[in-house]
Amino acid sequence: MAAVTVSCSKIAPPTRATAPHHRPNVEEWRVARALSDVYVPDVQVGNTAALGRLRVPFALYIVSMHERLHDVYEEELTAAREANPELRDAVDLAVLIEIVVNQVDGRIAKLGVAKSSGSVVFDVVALSALRRAARFDVPPPSISSPGGKVYVHWTFHADPYQACSPRNARPFLLAKAPSSMTATSAFKHGP
């Protein structure tokens, strides 16, 4: 099985326009229940299945997500560093984001911080970049979990060499659809 690797510095620009530049503030993300103090991940121990033969389709899908995401993440991080002096020299920050994509249309169904970087501002950078980069390509049905969703945990770094690299994304296949207790709505990102 061939490994799929992509350097963050050699990604072609996205072919579709990204969402407008409205940058949600921290309170808007809290209301959307996307920050780690209120977010409940759908991927839970005991409710995952082995990927097996689906590793390659997942890897290809993650690379396609990265093609949409990379430039947007770079823009968001640059703007945040200009506005927040505490981020200018921070290279050791990393935030784990749970991304849930609708299989039928590639839209984000749910987005949240599974493990905070310790900097709410940096966490919001990753969330905002994902929101702006979406809608992603329609995922292949084979990587869809019960309930019609695709689950990826992606670690975003402040370090430019790690940044939003696809090697920091981990796909999950759920054994059963999450209960309604863990389901929350995604941040509203327009039409």
Rank of each mutant, 00 (worst) to 15 (best):
residue 65 M to Q: 05
residue 66 H to L: 10
residue 66 H to V: 08
residue 66 H to R: 10
residue 66 H to A: 11
residue 67 E to S: 07
residue 68 R to W: 03
residue 69 L to G: 06
residue 69 L to C: 09
residue 70 H to L: 00
residue 70 H to D: 02
residue 71 D to K: 04
residue 72 V to M: 02
residue 72 V to N: 00
residue 72 V to H: 02
residue 72 V to S: 01
residue 74 E to T: 08
residue 74 E to S: 04
residue 75 E to W: 00
residue 75 E to S: 00
residue 75 E to T: 03
residue 76 E to D: 05
residue 76 E to S: 04
residue 78 T to L: 06
residue 78 T to N: 08
residue 78 T to K: 09
residue 78 T to G: 04
residue 78 T to I: 08
residue 78 T to C: 07
residue 79 A to F: 03
residue 79 A to M: 09
residue 80 A to F: 01
residue 80 A to R: 02
residue 80 A to D: 07
residue 80 A to T: 01
residue 80 A to L: 01
residue 81 R to H: 07
residue 82 E to N: 08
residue 84 N to L: 12
residue 85 P to F: 06
residue 85 P to N: 05
residue 85 P to L: 10
residue 86 E to V: 12
residue 86 E to A: 14
residue 87 L to Y: 11
residue 87 L to P: 15
residue 87 L to A: 09
residue 88 R to T: 15
residue 89 D to I: 10
residue 89 D to W: 12
residue 91 V to A: 09
residue 91 V to W: 11
residue 92 D to H: 03
residue 92 D to S: 06
residue 93 L to M: 11
residue 95 V to P: 04
residue 95 V to I: 08
residue 95 V to L: 08
residue 96 L to Q: 14
residue 96 L to S: 15
residue 97 I to Y: 01
residue 97 I to W: 00
residue 97 I to K: 00
residue 100 V to R: 04
residue 100 V to K: 00
residue 100 V to S: 09
residue 102 N to V: 11
residue 102 N to C: 11
residue 103 Q to M: 14
residue 103 Q to V: 15
residue 103 Q to E: 15
residue 104 V to F: 14
residue 105 D to M: 12
residue 105 D to F: 10
residue 106 G to M: 11
residue 107 R to G: 14
residue 108 I to G: 07
residue 108 I to M: 15
residue 110 K to C: 10
residue 110 K to N: 11
residue 110 K to P: 01
residue 111 L to G: 01
residue 111 L to Y: 07
residue 111 L to R: 05
residue 112 G to C: 06
residue 112 G to E: 09
residue 113 V to W: 04
residue 113 V to Y: 03
residue 113 V to H: 04
residue 114 A to L: 07
residue 114 A to P: 01
residue 116 S to M: 13
residue 116 S to L: 14
residue 116 S to K: 14
residue 116 S to P: 15
residue 117 S to Y: 02
residue 118 G to D: 13
residue 118 G to Y: 10
